[in-house]
């Protein structure tokens, strides 16, 4: 190979490495900034006490509780309907107009930004169904938002189950429903659980849709119908309305640690799942 071609090849390689390193550096810049400015301010008191600007208490416990409420309710709603829908698409559906319409809807919903979901939840769940600013409104809105992701990933999980198991079950005389409940779903369960975990991460990080449907009240929620402020909305409110960097950085770090933990678990789990298959 002529010398100049080797040089050109090397130059392109260098550019690729440099650009990639730049992206990686930005990630570590954000993470280290969060850790340096946030970690000293995360104390036991901060995590377990209430928030009240007038009394000068600035904990995040109510926000954590609200976030957990919204995560659980959303997960129940989107988990059940999502898995059912995925079972339909993976096991029952035949190519035809109904399936193409469903797939078109799923693809379109994926592209819609969260603020549009927020507007929809604000007018439909909050105003028309009269659920008000509440955990239920927010959870229903978020459930619609994460549904395409849940359905698509669960469908992939179901399709990755070895065909032989299913055929064996049919050969033994089991019906379709029996096979789905006892063979396909249990075999796909580990993957479906990782899908749910990733969904938890998405719900925890969502701000715009929750801001329009759950409100910004910083009390402990009393139930599914009371309004509340999630951790991510809390970060936004602090950033917008107060100048208190320490508090905000601490809240942001708590949220990022929670999400990184989920990603870490999912990564480890999928490595184990993939290793088992081979």
């Amino acid at each position: 190979m002529p010398y100049w071609r080797k040089c050109k090849d090397f130059a392109v390689k260098i550019i690729i490495w440099l650009f990639s390193l730049a992206a990686l550096a930005f990630l570590f810049w954000i993470l280290s900034d969060l850790i340096i400015k946030g970690l000293p301010n995360i104390t036991f008191d901060y995590i377990t006490s209430e928030y009240n600007e007038y009394k000068g208490i600035n904990g995040i416990a109510p926000m954590i509780v609200t976030t957990l409420w919204i995560i659980s309710v959303t997960l129940i709603i989107s988990g059940v309907t999502g898995v059912f829908a995925a079972v339909y698409l993976a096991e029952y559906s035949r190519p035809g107009p109904i399936v193409s319409v469903i797939r078109f809807a799923l693809e379109s919903l994926t592209g819609i930004p969260s603020i549009i979901y927020g507007l929809f939840g604000y007018i439909f769940f909050k105003s028309i169904l009269k659920l008000g600013f509440s955990i239920l409104s927010a959870s229903l809105t978020l459930a619609v938002m994460v549904l395409p992701f849940v359905i698509r990933s669960t469908e992939n999980a179901l399709r990755s189950v070895n065909r032989l198991y299913r055929d064996g079950s049919f050969a033994l005389g089991a019906t379709k429903l029996y096979t789905v409940m006892n063979i396909t779903l249990p075999c796909a369960a580990p993957r479906i659980i990782t899908v749910m975990l990733l969904t938890v991460g998405r719900i925890a990080g969502e701000t715009a849709a929750v801001y329009f449907t759950a409100g910004t009240v910083y009390r402990y929620p009393e139930g599914i119908m009371s309004s509340g402020r999630t951790l991510s909305v809390h970060i936004y409110m602090l950033a917008k309305e107060t100048g208190n960097y320490d508090e905000t950085y601490a809240a942001a770090l708590v949220l990022v640690i929670f999400i990184s933990l989920i990603h870490f678990i999912v990564n480890t789990a999928s490595r184990v799942i993939n290793a088992e298959r081979i």
Binding site: I30, G205, E206, T207, I235, Y236, L255, S260
Partner: peptide, 11 residues
């Protein structure tokens, strides 16, 4: 992709 947008914004 997991870092919430509000955290990017605050950064």
């Amino acid at each position: 992709s997991g870092i919430p947008s509000v955290v990017y914004g605050y950064f």
